[in-house]
Amino acid sequence: MAEADLYFEYKGIYFTHFYHTPESLKYLEELSFRPDDIFIATYPKSGTTWSQEIVSQIMSGGDSSTAETLPYQDRTPWIEATQLADLHFEDRPSPRIFTTHLPYNMMPPSFYKVKPKAIYVMRNPKDVMISAFHYFGKRPIYADPGTLTEFLHKFLDGSKMPYGSWFDHVKSWLNAEDKEQFLYLNYEDMVQNLENSVARTAQFLDKSLDTEVIEKIAEKCLFKNMRNKVPDDSTNPIKSDDERLSELFRKGIVGDWKNHLSVEEAKYFDAVCKEKMRDVKCKWD
């Protein structure tokens, strides 16, 4: 299908018809948030599902009963998705957990007013691009990515990527005001030392957990263990459990881009990244 049939533009950003409608995005702008709400914000393919599980486990004190009975989209729903209005989230007790792929400057007015805590997870953009290339290629709700070289240029341009440019997205969150409201995590740090990332997140969320519980959560949320859990996602047009797992948890390794990009492509990517991110301090590997 053509991009025009799969995507629509809202405030200059591409969204998929499958997960969003102009009405759901307008509904989002009218939401009222609470100061103790928790947000997980990411650019797509940056460890979103992983982060959802980690935060859910932390807030439950390591109790997996809720995590094992409620699917991700019900426990930590996307605020911009069509399903949010059906979940009656306004009736849920605090603290509520939300997820978003929106850039910071597209968050609802209430978010800036009440200043809930937000966790922003970043990942090496080359690995994000490779993950998105494989993901889009296997899911019919996205436009055909074409060749890897074609997709690389599309990703670097960003104007026709769902949720917009990776560069604009990351900069919008890194440049947000009221820094005490945010915790910034790197995907690469999470892979290297998950216990430390769990401990940092728990501290940020004012959740007092002893060392044993932190270790337990980190073990449950190791990538190899996450792959063994099939999320109950009725909105995912994947036929089998194996296919569903391969889409949400493909490899999860750091530096997979080295297995796909030529030396010339990697140099070109780095040059564009350096130029676009010249005014922002960030690290990846």
Rank of each mutant, 00 (worst) to 15 (best):
D206M: 00
D206S: 12
D210K: 04
D210S: 05
E212D: 13
I214W: 12
K216A: 12
I217N: 15
I217T: 13
A218T: 12
A218G: 15
A218I: 10
A218L: 08
E219K: 10
E219F: 03
C221I: 14
F223L: 11
K224G: 12
K224I: 09
M226H: 11
M226Q: 14
N228V: 07
V230R: 04
P231F: 13
D232Q: 12
D233G: 06
N236V: 09
P237N: 11
P237R: 14
P237I: 01
K239N: 06
S240F: 11
S240I: 07
D241A: 14
L245E: 08
S246F: 05
E247F: 14
K251Y: 08
K258T: 15
N259I: 08
H260M: 03
H260K: 06
L261M: 13
S262L: 03
S262P: 01
V263L: 03
V263T: 12
E264G: 00
E265H: 09
E265M: 07
A266H: 00
A266L: 00
A266F: 00
K267N: 14
Y268R: 03
Y268V: 01
Y268K: 07
D270Q: 12
D270N: 13
A271H: 00
V272F: 00
V272D: 02
V272S: 06
C273H: 02
C273R: 07
E275G: 03
E275A: 10
K276Q: 01
M277I: 04
D279W: 10
D279H: 05
V280C: 01
V280L: 03
V280H: 03
K281I: 01
